[in-house]
């Protein structure tokens, strides 16, 4: 049983759950120093909640690694961008870039979002063949699948919204670095997408669970995320 972070912090210098949690990624990647590793492992030995968190993270990474290459995971622009930021700050693409942590956070959301979407999309696209039911396909099963699909859809949409929020924050804290013309184009087009999202939501309100509308809505979210991502990572105009 894990103690609360506050209790732990007052009792010993050992890291608390709150301190350990963000280090789990690095532990898996082997990025921690020996001292950090030892401290985290000592904490894990006595904390079941963090052990479960670590196991869950490892499972997720295994599942991601097992995804087929054809699966459309959002493009990892980070590896592409990072060297430019560090190696040639005054080169042609110079200019102030968005806070790296914000962009990294956004990309993390997006990666998770992409993964989630890949788990969700097949479910959304899976046809429910009610005209030719299999022995196990009862009305209840169909209803259950529909309910699960709606839950999956809600999760996927929430995930996109989180990613969007993070990217907005990155883009708008540095919006002065984008030329007025580009900013105008982007804002007008974001409004086009937002209008589409509003229309799709209104239609879904009238016809909840409509598969086609759900897919169109997720498609618009994806388009918006993609636009914000590009703006956040690339458009520091000189």
């Amino acid at each position: 049983m894990c103690e609360t972070p506050d209790m732990r912090e007052t009792k010993s210098p050992e890291p608390s759950c709150r301190q350990v949690d963000p280090l789990l990624d690095d532990l898996i990647d082997g990025q921690l120093s020996e001292g950090q590793q030892e401290a985290v492992r000592r904490h894990l030995a006595g904390c079941q909640a963090c052990r479960e968190q670590l196991a869950s993270l490892e499972r997720l990474l295994d599942e991601v690694a097992a995804l087929p290459r054809a699966v459309e995971v959002p493009r990892d622009l980070w590896s592409d961008i990072e060297p430019r930021l560090t190696e040639r700050p005054m080169a042609a693409t110079s200019g102030r870039w968005p806070d790296l942590r914000q962009v990294a956070a956004a990309l993390l959301f997006m990666t998770l979002g992409g993964v989630l979407t890949h788990f969700v999309q097949p479910a959304l696209r899976r046809p429910v063949d009610v005209s030719n039911p299999q022995p196990s396909t009862t009305v209840q099963t169909v209803e259950l699948m529909a309910t699960e699909r709606r839950a999956d859809f809600a999760l996927a949409e929430a995930d996109y919204l989180r990613a969007k929020e993070a990217l907005w924050s990155a883009v708008y804290s540095n919006r002065q670095d984008v030329s007025p013309v580009t900013r105008d184009v982007v804002e007008r087009n974001l409004e086009v997408i937002d209008q589409a999202i509003r229309e799709l939501r209104a239609a879904l309100h009238v016809d909840p669970g409509n598969h086609q509308l759900e897919n169109l809505l997720l498609g618009q979210h994806r388009t918006e995320i993609d636009l914000l991502q590009r703006l956040a990572l690339r458009t520091s105009e000189i």
Partner: peptide, 10 residues
């Protein structure tokens, strides 16, 4: 091939 500018130029 890279064009390098003096500071942030317009």
């Amino acid at each position: 091939i890279e064009v390098e500018l003096r500071g942030r130029s317009h």
